[in-house]
Design a protein around this nucleic acid. Structure first.
Lengths: 164, 164
DNA sequence: ACAAACAATATGATTTTTCATATAGTTTCG
DNA sequence: CGAAACTATATGAAAAATCATATTGTTTGT
């Protein structure tokens, strides 16, 4: 059937052999995330941003004036890294930092006009890309994926709250 | 059809405000992957491994004697990084490298007994962890998640073959 | 058989990331 | 009030990742 004779012809794609890995949930999640993001992240880089920077912009589009710590969680980056990234973005004039008058430890981050403009360009691109992806998935899969991921996230966040 | 007068429900934990990000597929994938992996990756580190190292072991458990490039794809790491990681793992005696007699450019990687022992310890832990996760998901969600991710991956890999 | 084109891995140099901890501001409570 | 205990952000030093390219081996076309 799929016999390929002596020279074991190169397998396609990841060269996925059946086995533990290719059915392992954590692998599927990481691989799907990686692969799905790859294309869009290319556009992000062409816009002169690194991935976490784009994430920061997207988060600020949702909640301008967020704190560093919040941004770190939402952008899936560590706090010390986020601090530096914010610093660089500030230098580039994409955002500004202002300490919260109500609590001096907090630093709130706001988009500048330049930052807002860039965001206004990228978010629609992201949405378009997402729509294209969703369209490629067979009907029910497309419909199930996001809710399933949200459930998973909900379960995991609930766990965090108890365990630590 | 898929239109859902976006009434986005508030989410806990991340302090997720409804908005673009929390319903964005690429975010959901990355966040779910991150959160789901976090717990197990803690165990991995306690076993003295970094995440990509664990991934290499898992891949080798499936296909001992894989090439560096294959391992890089499967372990979701870049080739030059993988090369160095393999080097370190070899130094630690977890695996050995042998150049392929049929094609001298290729380097095939094999588990040592020590590597195999460690793998034999971790893979079952991973499976147990996965099972626990799956059990926490509501019936149909648990059943849908993996197939949905596999479809997504299949679609994305098909695309790569044309475009990239 | 040979030169170009290609493929797999390695490596130097630079940039990022991480880890631990410093610094600064705030709350708790005796 | 004032001393812990805490919380938010920053930062130095070390580890790791990335990029471009070198090196080595193989295939192809003439």
């Amino acid at each position: 059937m799929t016999q390929q004779t002596t020279k074991a012809k190169r397998v396609e794609g990841t060269g996925q052999a059946p086995g533990f890995v290719s059915d392992y949930l954590l692998y599927l999640l990481a691989a799907a995330s990686d692969a799905a993001s790859a294309q869009f992240h290319t556009k992000v880089r062409k816009a002169g941003l690194r991935v976490p920077e784009w994430r920061v912009l997207a988060c600020l589009a949702d909640t301008d004036g967020a704190m560093i710590t919040q941004l770190a969680r939402r952008a899936l980056a560590e706090q010390s890294r986020l601090t530096r990234i914010i610093g660089q973005m500030e230098d580039r004039g994409l955002l500004i930092r202002r300490s919260d008058p109500a609590d001096g430890r907090r630093v709130r981050v706001y988009l500048t006009d330049a930052g807002r403009a860039l965001t206004a360009e990228l978010v629609p691109q992201a949405q378009k890309h997402e729509a294209a992806l969703m369209e490629m998935l067979q009907g029910n899969v497309g419909a199930q994926l996001k809710p399933a991921l949200k459930s998973l996230l909900a379960v995991l966040e609930a766990q965090e709250d108890w365990q630590g």
